[in-house]
Amino acid sequence: MTADERRDIEADCARLIALYANLNDAADWQGVAALYAPDGRMARPTAPDDWVEGRDAILAAFLARPARVTRHICSNVVIDVLSATEAVGESAMLLFTGDSAPKVGSFHDRFVLGAAGWRFAERRGSLTFQGS
Rank of each mutant, 00 (worst) to 15 (best):
I79R: 10
D49G: 08
A84Y: 13
T97K: 06
D39R: 09
V112I: 14
G105C: 09
R15E: 15
T2A: 01
G125L: 07
G98I: 05
R7I: 12
N24K: 15
D50Q: 06
T128K: 14
L94A: 09
R123G: 03
E90H: 02
R41W: 01
T70A: 01
G125Y: 00
D4K: 15
E90Q: 08
G40R: 00
H72V: 01
L113S: 10
R15Y: 15
A121F: 02
W51I: 01
D28G: 03
G54L: 01
A33F: 01
I9M: 11
A87M: 07
L127G: 05
R6D: 14
I9Y: 07
S126Q: 14
D56A: 06
V81M: 13
G117I: 11
Q30T: 13
Y36T: 00
W29N: 05
R55Y: 05
T46R: 11
D12G: 10
T46Y: 12
L82K: 15
S132C: 14
D80A: 11
I73G: 12
R65I: 08
P102Y: 02
V77Q: 08
V78C: 09
S106G: 07
A34R: 00
T85E: 08
Y20Q: 08
G114W: 03
A34V: 05
F107H: 08
M1I: 12
R110F: 13
S100E: 13
W51L: 02
E122R: 09
T2L: 07
L16D: 06
A116Y: 04
A3W: 04
G117A: 10
Q130P: 07
A64G: 05
A92V: 09
E122H: 07
A84T: 14
V104C: 11
N76V: 04
A26G: 02
A26T: 00
I58K: 01
L63T: 05
G117V: 01
S83Q: 15
W51N: 04
N76S: 04
A121S: 09
D99M: 12
R68E: 04
G89N: 00
A101W: 11
